[in-house]
Design a protein around this nucleic acid. Structure first.
Length: 205
DNA sequence: CCACGGATGCGCT
DNA sequence: GCGCATCCGTGGA
């Protein structure tokens, strides 16, 4: 934690204008904002401390790189909607960015747990705070996010949304994305510097 | 109907 | 740091 960080207090839900920009900008600005889910009837969520941008152009790691399919169609839709896809029997949660037709998104990779910690512990089957939301599939499990969230609007307080409330982090870091098998040269992963809640090895924080 | 990908995570070492 | 368990949804047959 850095003493230069300041706390924001606003319940305003992030709107389409926020998401309708380049994924790189959105990814950086999502750090320190608050992701909330009421899936399963329980309020869970936390501060976003790690994100990754997937670009609509020149990014072979982006799921929309080749063409639109049923799987990735929400990526081609309007900004401010969810793109959720299954991976290895788990899920990853993205916010769609830019205008319709441009397949880009921001993957939420880690949260500092804030709301519904007991419920998240139950869903994750662990009491370790640092292990609740430190990975894209971990946080989906903790927040009850599944494929049924794919294509949902994130700009109203229904099921899943993001509010301005949070922390203005001064120290952030950009690194290569984790786990991608192509376009490894692009530094499109954004992380709150030294955050113990982020995923990945320490030298990438 | 079925083969297979996939932006993972856990459990070892 | 690395191997592999795990499984849903897709799309081709």
């Amino acid at each position: 934690m850095n003493e230069c960080n300041s706390i924001r207090s606003s319940n305003r839900v992030l709107q389409q204008e926020f998401y309708s920009r380049e994924p790189k900008i959105v990814a950086r600005e999502l750090l320190g904002k608050t992701l909330i889910s009421t899936s399963g009837g329980k309020k869970t969520g936390g501060l976003i401390v790690e994100t990754e941008a997937y670009l609509s152009k020149g990014d072979s790691a982006c799921h929309g790189y080749h063409r639109q399919t049923t799987k990735n169609s929400s990526m081609f839709g309007p900004a401010g909607y969810a793109y959720v896809y299954p991976i290895h029997a788990k899920y990853c949660f993205n916010t769609v960015t830019e205008e319709p037709g441009k397949p880009s998104a921001v993957l939420i990779r880690a949260l500092q747990p804030i709301f519904g910690i007991e419920e998240m512990e139950r869903r994750r089957k662990t009491n370790e705070l640092l292990n609740l939301c430190s990975g894209p599939s971990k946080l989906c499990q903790a927040l009850g996010i599944g494929r049924y969230i794919d294509g949902r609007n994130l700009t109203s307080k229904r099921k899943v949304w993001i509010i301005e409330d949070g922390t203005n982090y001064q120290a952030t870091k950009a690194t290569a994305r984790i786990g991608v098998t192509s376009a490894k040269n692009l530094k499109l992963r954004f992380v709150v510097k030294s955050s113990e809640f982020a995923s990945g090895p320490k030298y990438l924080r």
